[in-house]
């Protein structure tokens, strides 16, 4: 099973939206995945052991050793499919 960390400002609002969309897309594509949410300020200590980190906005605040995908399109609704494809490409 692949592990995804979704980070946003407070670990509540936008990360829930993005996490739900990732779960849905993975289910549709038969990818076994576990999605965890957290705050952006915590990622440096939390990211280890995950296969992918997805941020809901811009992120310049720290270094992590996992691939990072920005997913603001999942909030605005423009370019949503491309971002989902990109996320899935890391998880297949």
């Amino acid at each position: 099973m692949k592990k995804v960390l979704v980070a946003c400002g407070n670990g509540i609002a936008t990360s829930t939206v993005v996490a739900e969309k990732i779960r849905e897309a993975c289910k549709e594509n038969g990818v076994d995945v576990s999605v965890t949410q957290c705050k952006l300020m915590e990622v440096e200590s939390k990211a280890e052991g995950y296969d992918l980190m997805v941020t809901t906005g811009m992120f310049t605040g720290g270094k992590v050793n996992v691939p990072v995908v920005g997913a603001i399109s999942l909030l605005t609704g423009f370019g949503e499919e491309e971002t989902i494809e990109k996320i899935l490409s890391y998880l297949k």
């Binding site: 980070a7 400002g9 407070n10 952006l40 906005g57 811009m58 992120f59 310049t60 909030l75 605005t76």
Partner: peptide
């Protein structure tokens, strides 16, 4: 959008 999308900036943090 929720302002959560900009709080990841390093100067903000």
């Amino acid at each position: 959008l929720d302002a959560a999308v900009v709080v990841g900036d390093s100067t903000v943090i």
